[in-house]
Design a binder for these strands. Structure first.
Lengths: 263, 263
DNA sequence: CATAGCATTCGACAATGCCGAATGGCGTTC
DNA sequence: GAACGCCATTCGGCATTGTCGAATGCTATG
């Protein structure tokens, strides 16, 4: 772990949380002397990773990040392969479709096909949702149970229906791994629910999840939707070179909640 | 300039150019010993800025960049203010509209409103175009002539009509600064032309450009389109607190080509 | 099964970035 | 309009830090 790079990343993260910050604010936020922070910020800004506000003397994230992320998206194999399938799924279902990959404790939306009803919808690519509050996150966790250890000790509640108990989450993930799909009902945003299935690659590992978002009053999803979704997940996985679907999960015992009387 | 951060940024840049690279490839690309590169890459990957390919042992850009860039876009004031105006411009003109900001020698598209004809169009946000080959770039250069010094010594030709001579570019930029708009005719992509106007902020400085893209057979644009575009630029600039529009350019002598007989 | 190429780990050296203090610029207040 | 105070920025000495070469381990290939 190289110190300077670690600190630089911390600073980017702080700017991610706070939009615009001065050197002193940043310094106290990361607990370093201002001169040190200044050096790091200056280095980052030489590469366009942070930028100084046009008028004031505060800093924000820089435009180079946009280019980097654009290339990141282009280099994501699963995204390129998914797009034609998810678009078709959106068309058939009349719903919006998302492709999500893991980013630490969150799912980040790497692609989004809007509802085909022609309404103006916001660009969701780049948005993040906590793992435990999304169907895609549940899928990713169910097939990578070791990631459960990285979850924050207390699960943040986004709505009244968010799962906040790790034991309950484990139990649900166990079912997810058995059924091959996950659902989420009003757990992230009130009125919005979703269903997700895994996407596997050549190695057989789950590398992403795709989900359809449906109004909560249409929950639970009809079998036909579920089948279309499954078919889509299977098709993408096949294009990526995965031979089996749904993927085999290493779950089993890993996902079972600890015995209730445990310390 | 902190060495480690500089090197880290170089590595991100190399990955930006080459998608997937192994440690040794990266090392020779940046001219450093593999062990050094490995340390940097490892540090970057801890923060999700680079990621290891799921199967092999090559590295690519990481998902954290997507989140960072998403926040970058959200924190771009000019983008938030532009969106409603550019959408309206697209609607009225039937053409696609772009918002571009400077990133070193390129313009990066920070927002894009597609043609309203309902056809499937690619997501242009994050794409970059060389300054000298785009109308937006010409606008940005015309109002920041000092940036001319950063241009590569030889201007890359993208089509037969790309301006590759710095003297000719300077002359055109002089006109751009006087007229308050720039055009580009088949200079970046054959069959595609564009017109751009500046966007100024509170300080009166030009911080972005907006452009409409039109088929080259409709070039030059009609006056009504030009007026709509100007109106849009003025409206956005006004929302950003700019009092005058078109902005005053610091150009004058700066943009005049050097005397032809100069050494 | 052997080999070659690669990623990765380790440790010693010294070059590097870190920090505290000094400077400079800017906005604000009286 | 002048003086104050805040904050970004610069600078230089010290020691911590990252760097690099060599050794290891892994995987894929012939």
């Amino acid at each position: 772990m190289i110190q300077a790079i670690d600190r630089a990343a911390q600073i980017l993260l702080k700017l991610q949380g706070s939009r615009h910050l001065g050197i002193t604010e940043l310094a106290s936020a990361v607990g370093l002397p201002p001169s040190t922070v200044h050096g790091i910020v200056k280095s980052l800004s030489q590469h366009g990773l942070v930028a100084k506000e046009s008028n004031g003397n505060r800093y924000m994230l820089g435009p180079a990040l946009l280019k980097l992320s654009s290339v990141y998206l282009d280099s994501l194999d699963v995204r390129a392969r998914s797009m034609r399938w998810t678009r078709e799924l959106s068309r058939r279902s009349g719903l919006s479709t998302r492709l999500g990959v893991k980013l630490f404790n969150e799912v980040i939306i790497a692609h989004h096909d809007p509802r085909p009803d022609g309404s103006e919808q916001m660009l969701e690519t780049g948005l993040v949702i906590p793992m435990h509050a999304s169907a895609m996150g549940k899928v990713l966790l169910a097939y990578h149970p070791e990631d459960l250890d990285d979850l924050p000790s207390s699960l943040r509640s986004l709505t009244g229906d968010t799962i906040t108990d790790l034991g309950i989450l484990r139990t649900e993930l166990h079912d997810v791994a058995e059924q091959g799909f996950a659902t989420e009902h009003d757990e992230a945003i009130l009125g919005e629910s979703s269903v997700a299935v895994p996407v596997a690659d050549q190695s057989g590992g789950v590398v992403a999840a795709i989900a359809v978002v449906l109004p909560s009053n249409e929950f639970p999803p009809q079998d036909s939707l579920l089948n279309d979704l499954r078919e889509t997940g299977r098709n993408i996985s096949r294009e990526l070179g995965s031979s089996v679907w749904p993927p085999i999960s290493s779950s089993g015992t890993l996902l079972l909640p600890p015995p209730p009387q445990s310390a």
